[in-house]
């Protein structure tokens, strides 16, 4: 009896000593969607449960120790696969595998703004879980999220450099676009091609925002309801309403080019002026319709630059 009480006292002393170490380190206090979270300024093991968090972490110079598969895939988004080839997956479409997250002993978890509270309750018991306060689809979301994660990872200076680099590149491409494409031929829309027709993506979307900033005039033909990520699949009879100077066509799989071929076999699509002019650009759906972050921004800018170089003489 006496022995066990002694053990108990010793344990308390140990806990006290450990927590005083914690106070001594310079902690970062960050306001998240689910309240204030304290993070050590020396995080090493990062787990991301969000493509945007993974992108930001890599951009800020970290290699996470866990990530989840992207929507519609069985791995991280393909534009990040080269960087993330050593990052183990801790979840996929069936959800986050909590045990796999625990096994990575993370110091911090980067989560999306849409993380449900029940999941937060679980994850926050494993490590400080960072959920952005800003919600919804927003053109500037990638900048906000980068700064937010950078604050938690103590790399705020680096984040500003990245934002400056991307903005610089956008401005560069904008002069190129304005020089090469006449002002009345810069209309563009981002579509997802479905067997029964097309879905238009909202202009609020990250990739559309980048496209807009490089000088394209991005429209959704008034088809996307406010707050929705995309329209419903349009009837083929209404396809002419999305005719534009440029169409960026995405599919959820890797075969955006296959989707373009499929679309072109549809007589309703082949009739569009944009198809006749060969101004339909197949793009990767994972990158253009479900990714976000500075590395994604650069990859999208690569695609746009490629269009200018190959489609315009």
């Amino acid at each position: 009896m006496m022995f066990s009480r002694n053990m108990f006292c010793m344990a308390w002393v140990l806990v006290g000593a450990l927590s005083s170490f914690g106070v001594n380190a310079a902690d970062i206090n960050i306001k998240t969607q689910y309240g204030n979270v304290v993070v050590s300024d020396q995080v090493k093991r990062i787990v991301t449960v969000y493509d945007g968090g993974l992108d930001s972490a890599f951009a800020l110079g970290y290699e996470p120790v866990g990530a989840i598969a992207t929507r519609g895939g069985d791995n991280v988004p393909s534009y990040l696969q080269e960087r993330a080839k050593n990052v183990p997956l801790v979840g996929g479409m069936q959800g986050i595998n909590i045990e796999a997250v625990i096994a990575q002993r993370p110091d911090i978890i980067l989560a999306p703004w849409y993380l449900p509270e029940e999941q937060y309750a679980l994850l926050s018991r494993i490590a400080p879980t960072i959920v952005p306060t800003e919600k919804g689809i927003h053109p500037e979301a990638w900048i906000y999220e980068l700064r937010f994660y950078a604050k938690a990872l103590n790399r705020e200076q680096k984040a500003e450099e990245i934002i400056e680099q991307v903005n610089g590149r956008i401005a560069e491409l904008k002069t190129l676009v304005e020089a090469k494409i006449p002002e009345n031929e810069r209309g563009a829309s981002l579509l997802r091609w479905m067997p029964q027709g097309a879905m238009v993506l909202t202009t609020e979307f990250f990739s559309n925002a980048i496209l807009g900033q490089t000088g394209f005039n991005v429209t959704d033909a008034g088809l996307v309801k406010k707050g929705r990520p995309h329209s419903s699949a349009l009837s083929l009879e209404n396809l002419s309403s999305i005719d534009n100077d440029w169409i960026f066509m995405a599919t959820l799989n890797d075969e955006a080019k296959g989707a373009l071929a499929a679309a072109q076999t549809s007589p309703a699509f082949a009739r569009l002026n944009v198809a006749k002019q060969d101004h339909v650009i197949p793009v990767h759906g994972q990158l253009w319709t479900s990714s976000i972050g500075p590395i994604a921004a650069n990859a999208i800018l690569d695609d746009i630059q490629n269009v200018i170089e190959t489609k315009l003489k």
């Binding site: 519609g72 895939g73 069985d74 067997p195 029964q196 027709g197 699949a233 309703a268």
Partner: peptide
């Protein structure tokens, strides 16, 4: 195990005679 296929078949199973 293949969400991409699931996304595509979602439209096929409800049937359609369009296009």
């Amino acid at each position: 195990y293949n969400e991409q296929a699931a996304d595509e078949i979602r439209f096929w199973v409800t049937g359609s005679i369009a296009g």
